[in-house]
Design a protein around this nucleic acid. Structure first.
Lengths: 244, 244
DNA sequence: CGATGAGTTGAGAGCAATCAAGATGGGTGG
DNA sequence: CCACCCATCTTGATTGCTCTCAACTCATCG
């Protein structure tokens, strides 16, 4: 049921990436797995979250809701991403399992002790947080300035790049032609993420399909015949941006 | 010209907040001040930035530009904020002085050595980065879901809260009635920040003034007679959100 | 086989962008 | 001291993209 850290599929990408054998023993001792079904709530904004965790498999979303019900997803956690803020037990966001989700959880106290005593882990967490910040800033550009069509194209690119990174493939654009992308989100979740309505998401996906930028197999499987074309549609610079 | 760390106006809010006397001596030894005039470029995206820094006074903006010229500001650095990413000499963003700006700069090598050897500083930087990430996520909600009017109101709130925090005042809403807010940005810079055009910014400021939510003295000075009213206009929850 | 949730498509409305003039105000030079 | 200039800001008219509201399709599951 629970995999030892040394055999973990996200061993070299998660917060534990820079750990040495001794560190892993301490993590192994204080960790436990938790599963959530698609749609389940992991934590509520303002509620206590007694652990921090790494996403082992599946997708989780962080979202904020306004009084009148408008919601915006503000974080998308894929395998190896870190969930929770050390030193703060109260969650600032709603955390939802967008697909079936497996978390590797650490009780706060031992994890925070480890953070304080182990510069390899705290340094790794700082690096990951800085990456999250860069990703959030990419997202600011997307939400502030991109058209609906560009938003969809950008989102597909992100998923493709993350997929490639997890498969250890070269994330250079040219290597991604013909890749199929599994959409782990409903149209509504995509809309929450992209600052659109689900109807607009649906329309733009249809339009990209009609224009030959993507092909669909089922509702949730996207094939990108020409990745450079997708990049052009996204409005991004030609280079791949920051490494994931 | 250069103030010793112990007398620094941002001593207890910047990256050096948790330093002890000995740490400050090392910082004092490797720091130097740099001034920029409003509008000057501090660094270009893709260019080298040989230092990291704390903002002592003034305002700096981080922004991203798309190929066709659309720009989005992705960070607003006020006094005590940290500029630059340790371990990465190439700037990911354009950095501009939005007003006259004074930076307390640290050469990378000594600062990164200090980060590695001193858990007080690295812990403080992690905390500040997590705060930046929370702020960026607030901004995602603003860009993704708020109306132009709500964006302007939210922006004024942020400035008011930061002002209050710097003056060590209680950032509780009730204490802020009658506060005057100096806008350190042009309408265009505000538009870049809010994902709007400068015309829309101007129109919405006029509308808020017409409706009695704010008063203006000159173009750049805003008076908020009733802070709760401004909060209501911003669409935020009634509580103050996360501390700045 | 009806019920349900997810997704698609259409028609119309509304908000902010765009295009286009003016207004304001601080600084400079005659 | 005044006239002019330029950047900044304001305001108006129109356009266009996305939202809203609504109907319909499709697959899955009791």
């Amino acid at each position: 049921m629970q995999v030892p850290c040394a055999d973990c599929p996200i061993r070299y990408r998660a917060v534990c990436a820079t750990c040495e054998a001794g560190d892993l023993d301490r993590l192994d001792a204080s960790k436990y797995y938790r599963r959530y079904q698609a749609g389940q709530t992991v934590a509520l904004a303002g509620g206590r979250m007694e652990f921090v965790a790494s996403v082992v498999s599946g997708v989780a979303g962080l979202s904020q809701t306004m009084e009148d019900g408008r919601t915006q997803m503000v974080g998308l956690l894929l395998p190896s991403d870190f969930l929770g803020r050390p030193g703060r037990v109260v969650s600032a966001y709603d955390v939802t399992a967008l697909s079936d989700l497996l978390l590797c959880c650490f009780r706060r106290k031992p994890f925070e002790d480890l953070l304080r005593s182990n510069p390899r882990i705290s340094g790794r967490l700082l690096d990951m947080t800085l990456d999250d910040l860069d990703a959030a800033r990419e997202w600011l550009l997307l939400l502030g300035r991109k058209s609906a069509r560009e938003k969809i194209a950008s989102f597909l690119m992100i998923l493709a790049r993350r997929n490639a990174a997890l498969r250890q493939a070269d994330p250079a654009d040219t290597a991604l032609d013909g890749m199929d992308i599994e959409l782990p989100l409903t149209r509504e979740a995509m809309a929450d993420y992209l600052g659109l309505t689900l109807e607009t998401v649906s329309r733009q996906i249809s339009a990209l399909k009609r224009d030959g930028v993507i092909r669909l197999s089922g509702k949730r499987q996207v094939i990108v015949p020409d990745f450079a074309r997708l990049v052009a549609e996204s409005g991004d610079d030609s280079d791949g941006g920051l490494p994931i």
